[in-house]
Nucleic acid binder design. Structure first.
Length: 431
RNA sequence: GUGGACGUAGCUCAAUUGGUAGAGCUCAGGAUUGUGAUUCCUGCGGUCGAGGGUUCGAUCCCCUUCGUCCACCCCA
């Protein structure tokens, strides 16, 4: 293909896939509404500064994955790589966080300049959920309970498991980082290349290295557990107790750390083994310091984001029928100029009288044969057939395309044009 | 940013030790002169990813490039 084409990593979502997307979006939106969360929408483009200050200057996202450019006035702007920072900015800017509790969600495209692979694109979509102004573990648990219920509703719960950890406060994390470094530095040569590099950039990330030798070395490393502050521990135990009380299963993974700088205390991930190397489908945590960091009044907050492409991949394998949308029930075949005209009037009238019923008119002409063929492929149950003869006599021929075995009359019947709507109503009622 | 595999018809894929390519599905038409899903026949459809090189001649060999997929890194 030589003509125009999409940018690398930017995918089209085709008609065969949109029903799955709509099903996912609808299910999530309904559930969030039921939990009392309200949708917020904000721009795709923000000042670059916002992400540098929130995600962290030395993270991979900010250092090499952002779509950053100057606008026509030379101001640096960035296509959002994630939603939390934007959500905080928007909520703070409009006073939504002042002296009040706020439950928000959003949905839309995010952009990261990475090399594409399974479950990863440069433009991808997230649904994000954020809860502001509540510091106890009850909100953390509410968010996790909500996600667990969602997997249940979507029929993909069996593919997912919950990993949970607390990374403490920034202070306790700093102390642990120091201890970890002290332990690893003498064994630097035994670490894999990436982990050696991470010693200076992000030592905590060494914990989830995939290298066997590195993992062996980590077996005797100091545990984050021993450096955590008592309050974070209590918060975490509170969260675990709430999850236990409603039967949400989890595994505590004290090597779970998240890549974004703003997290504190609770972090969690829903992971699957069915998506190749990109197993994380939904992840989040608490970020009590972020609002203040961005210039607002100190406000506790928790949130998470789920990757919609990854969820769609899971849905396609676990629930291939999910979201399939009904085809029009009626297909009107109209051969000839007069019939086309009469058919057009007929289907518009049917649409007036039976708004919920799907009606499609054959457009673009064609023989009876080819029009019937299209009627069949459209998935319609009933074909209305109009030709010169029918128009002259003011009648319509009606033919069942499906359901003949289900007690429907085979063959076709002729009805006066004026009776068609009443007949259809009676027939379609019990379908 | 790095590594591996792969780019042939709208889709899924063949073939050619270098002599300008085939099938299935789809689509259109016909057998059935006004009737779908099966069957049979016919037809439309390709600058063999792009650019350059070698050659009498390149889809095939060489170089470059772009893209896709998978993996690393990182993340949803």
């Amino acid at each position: 293909m030589t003509g125009v084409r999409a940018i690398k990593g930017m995918h089209d979502i085709l008609p065969d896939q949109t029903p799955t997307w709509r099903y996912l979006e609808r299910t999530v939106a309904d559930l969030l509404t039921a939990y009392g969360y309200r949708e917020i929408r904000f721009p795709v483009l923000e000042f670059t500064e916002l992400f540098k200050r929130s995600i962290g200057e030395v993270t991979d996202i900010v250092e090499k994955e952002m779509y950053t450019f100057e606008d026509r006035h030379g101001v640096s702007v960035t296509l959002r790589p994630e939603g939390t920072a934007c959500c905080v900015r928007a909520a703070e800017e409009h006073g939504l966080l002042f002296n009040q509790v706020q439950r928000l969600w959003y949905m839309g495209p995010m952009f990261r300049y990475e090399n594409p692979q399974k479950g990863r694109q440069r433009q991808f979509h997230q649904i994000g959920v954020e809860a502001f102004g509540m510091e106890g573990p009850d909100v953390d648990a509410e968010l996790i309970a909500l996600t667990a219920r969602l997997w249940q509703q979507l029929g993909i719960a069996g593919a997912l498991r919950l990993e949970l950890n607390t990374i403490g406060t920034p202070e306790s994390r700093a102390a642990y980082r120091k201890a970890l470094l002290a332990y690893l530095e003498p064994h630097k040569d035994k670490l894999d290349a990436d982990s050696q590099r991470r010693l200076s950039t992000n030592p905590l990330r060494i914990l989830d290295s995939k290298d066997a030798a590195t993992q062996a070395l980590l077996a005797n490393a100091p545990s984050m557990r021993d450096y955590r502050d008592a309050e974070s521990d209590a918060h975490f135990q509170g969260l675990c107790a709430l999850l236990d009380s409603i039967g949400v299963a989890y595994v505590v993974n004290d090597k779970l750390v998240r890549g974004l700088d703003y997290y504190s205390r609770t972090v969690f991930e829903w992971v699957t083994d069915e998506l190749g190397a990109q197993g994380t489908v939904c992840a989040g945590g608490r970020y009590d310091g972020l609002v203040e960091q961005l210039g607002g009044r100190a406000t506790p907050a928790v949130g998470f984001a789920m990757g919609m492409e990854r969820l769609c991949l899971l849905l396609e394998t676990r629930q291939p029928q999910a979201g399939s949308e009904p085809m029009p029930a009626i297909y009107c075949v109209a051969a000839g100029e007069a019939a086309q005209k009469a058919g057009f009037a007929l289907v518009e009238q049917l649409r007036n009288l039976m708004p919920g019923v799907g009606v499609q008119l054959n457009c673009g002409g064609g023989s009876f044969k080819s029009q019937l063929k299209r009627a069949d492929r459209s998935g319609a149950r009933i074909a209305l057939i109009l030709g010169e003869d029918e128009v002259a006599q003011g009648v319509v021929n009606i033919k069942w395309l499906r359901d003949v075995d289900a007690g429907r009359q085979a063959g076709q019947q002729t009805l006066p044009m004026t009776d068609v709507q009443a007949w259809l109503s009676s027939q379609l009622a019990d379908l």
